[in-house]
């Protein structure tokens, strides 16, 4: 019996390796269904609809992690930090990683990936067979409370949200799955990182007077609330301001993303 142990151990090691490789070879976030609903844009001109119907869709239960993104850059060399085209990502792209294929101590594998551009987030989503959510989809999902589909009066959610907004960006992020799931089983829409949306560039800069496009903390100004549908939703102002001030190649220390997919069956995609 004893002579077999090493073989068993070898087998286990091989198994562990195989599963590690498996984790590193694909996008691993599970999708949850967000039922159809209505998005009420916070900031809109007279030309914009007050209510935008949103079809049911699938959304990742958590943001994309460093492990996921490592798998992506491993499979797609042109998205590695040292190889990425400056057209698609600015100079701080993945700068907190230790090396091209080594997230390192500042980017734990299970923490959400940040310092990624919109182009990179989109390329990841395409590789994963998914897409980025639209603004309307993201906001519809993010409107859920912990225990009810409409989180507007969810005191616990509001408390956590504003506590997060008051905290500085941490040097190292917590696990992407560490936050309490909401009504739809989605984690971390609020409280972890900001997230790219596919149509971030629908945000018109006309409501925005700040000429300074430097990112991170100095862009989060909640001014300009005239014409807003819900003037108490400070977090939504911050998201709108962020989207309006971003360019597609920008990367910031608190901006990540998650993916979405249509509810149509998989075989509908070529």
């Amino acid at each position: 019996m004893s002579f077999r142990m090493p073989i068993v151990r070898c087998g286990l090691t091989a198994l562990a390796l195989a599963s590690a490789v498996k984790v590193l070879a694909e996008d691993t976030a599970a999708l949850r269904l967000i039922p159809a609903g209505t998005y009420e844009p916070l900031l809109r001109s007279s030309q914009d609809p007050a209510r935008i119907p949103v079809a049911a869709f699938l959304l990742d239960e958590r943001p994309v992690t460093n492990a996921d993104f490592l798998a992506f850059v491993t499979a797609n060399p042109k998205w590695r930090r040292s190889l990425v085209s400056r057209l698609f990502a600015d100079t701080s792209y993945l700068q907190h990683w230790s090396a091209d294929l080594e997230p390192g101590p500042a980017a734990p594998l299970r923490a959400p990936v940040v310092q990624v551009s919109w182009f990179a987030a989109r390329a990841y989503a395409r590789w994963a067979g998914k897409r980025l959510p639209t603004t309307a989809e993201w906001e519809l999902a993010a409107a859920a409370g912990y225990d009810r589909p409409d989180g507007r009066n969810d005191a616990a959610l509001k408390r956590d949200l504003y506590a997060w907004l008051a905290r500085p960006v941490p040097a190292v992020f917590a696990d992407a799955t560490s936050l309490r799931p909401d009504f739809h089983g989605i984690r971390g829409l609020h409280g972890l990182v900001w997230e790219w949306v596919d149509d971030f560039n629908t945000a018109m800069v006309t409501g925005e007077s700040r000429a300074d496009t430097t990112l991170d903390r100095n862009l989060f100004c909640g001014a300009g609330s005239a014409g807003a549908s819900d003037t108490t939703d400070y977090a939504a102002f911050m998201r709108a301001a962020l989207r309006a001030s971003l360019k597609a190649d920008n990367t910031t220390t608190s901006l990540g993303f998650r993916c979405a997919r249509d509810t149509a069956p998989l075989n509908a995609f070529p």
Binding site: S45, Q47, D48, P49, L87, W118, F119, R122, D198, D199, N201, T202, A203, M204, V205, K247, A248
Partner: peptide, 21 residues
């Protein structure tokens, strides 16, 4: 189209009347 708009720095958004800002 969205990628090209992002590269150029063009923002666009559908309006209620079927047009775009």
């Amino acid at each position: 189209v969205r990628e090209l708009a992002a590269l150029l720095g063009v923002s666009y958004k559908p309006e209620t009347g079927g047009g775009f800002s």
